[in-house]
């Protein structure tokens, strides 16, 4: 229900809806591809209607679509005829026709095949748990450490403050690709390869988070800090009891960013783990593409269920993020 309080809100809705279509379109394609069989993915591309065959009304079909659907029905018929025979007489070459959720089943339970299949065993459940554990630990830890540093940068005066700050910013400017090999050599010396330590510890410090929070802390009134310290409030108390509660919106925002960055990180976990039990979901996703070609259907299905938790989490978090607005008491 759209309530019309102001006529200009209609214009805002129209603009936002046009933008939304634009933002969402690729994902609609991703989801519809995830419920299509291989034949359909490779041969339905001439049609601008991206609905899967099973959901598309007949009048939207092109001749090519109809031929493909007919092929599929033939295969289905052949399969059921085959299944009607006694087990020992069946021709094992007749494959089961594609079903709506087959890509999802395949993506979740994909196992190392009989040598033809280049995939590794895919315990996707385990990947999820690894990813969740690493992501939550890194997000919580880096928020805590970064907020302490940002607090010092925003409120204290100390020697070399600007130099240290510029050096922190400097660490963001080195391309990741250049750091991979020195870090790998170092982690191997620590014997941290294939451990959670390797996945977590290097990311507990984030120059980005320090910079982000510093920008918000600088907007907090300085006189509040001076008044509180004169009244005998220790600096850590001021951080814990005043600064943190006041910075709920930036902390939630940063928490979301950190969660996403870690959930989607790919190159680092790929390099520092090689044990299947230590893998994370982005690495799991990469197994769908190999030299033998890309398994589009399962890849899109797996992509769908790896981003779904994020969409849900974000939707829930942003409500809180909206509600906590304007409670920062920053009136001058």
């Amino acid at each position: 229900m759209i309530k019309v309080k102001h006529p200009e809100h209609i214009a805002i809705h129209i603009l936002l809806i046009i933008g939304s279509i634009f933002m969402l379109f690729p994902f609609v394609w991703m989801i519809t591809t995830s419920v299509k069989g291989e034949d359909e993915i490779l041969n339905s591309s001439k049609s601008i209607v991206i609905l899967p065959d099973s959901l598309r009304p007949d009048f939207l079909n092109s001749d090519e679509d109809r031929q493909r659907i007919a092929r599929r029905e033939e295969r289905e018929k052949a399969y059921y005829e085959e299944m009607a025979r006694p087990v020992e007489q069946r021709n094992s070459r007749v494959k089961k026709p594609f079903n709506f959720f087959d890509n999802y089943r395949e993506a979740w339970t994909a196992q190392q095949g009989s040598g033809k299949d280049p995939w590794y065993l895919q315990p996707f459940g385990r990947y999820f748990l690894n990813t969740l554990f690493v992501t939550i630990t890194v997000t919580a830890g880096s928020l805590f450490f970064a907020s302490m540093s940002a607090y010092a940068f925003a409120f204290f005066k100390f020697p070399f403050k600007d130099t240290i700050f510029m050096m922190m910013l400097g660490t963001m400017m080195i391309p990741q690709q250049a750091l991979l090999i020195p870090n790998y050599i170092f982690l191997a010396k620590l014997d941290w390869i294939n451990t959670y330590m390797a996945l977590i510890v290097p990311w507990l410090a984030s120059a980005y988070s320090v910079f982000f929070l510093r920008q918000f802390f600088l907007q907090l009134p300085k006189d509040l800090f001076e008044a509180a310290t004169i009244d005998g409030c220790s600096r850590f108390q001021f951080y814990y009891k005043v600064v943190l509660p006041l910075s709920k919106p930036p902390m939630v925002t940063l928490g979301i960013f950190s969660f996403l960055a870690n959930w989607n990180s790919f190159v680092w976990p790929l390099i520092v783990t090689n044990d299947t039990n230590m893998r994370v979901i982005q690495v799991g996703l990469s197994y769908f593409s190999s030299e033998a070609g890309t398994k589009w259907g399962p890849l899109m299905a797996a992509s769908t269920f790896t981003i779904l938790p994020l969409v849900i989490m974000y939707f829930l978090a942003q409500k809180q993020f909206v509600e906590s607005q304007a409670t920062t008491g920053m009136k001058e």
Partner: peptide, 8 residues
């Protein structure tokens, strides 16, 4: 306050 971030 800077120690953990700086060390890592």
């Amino acid at each position: 306050y800077l120690l953990p971030v700086v060390v890592i």
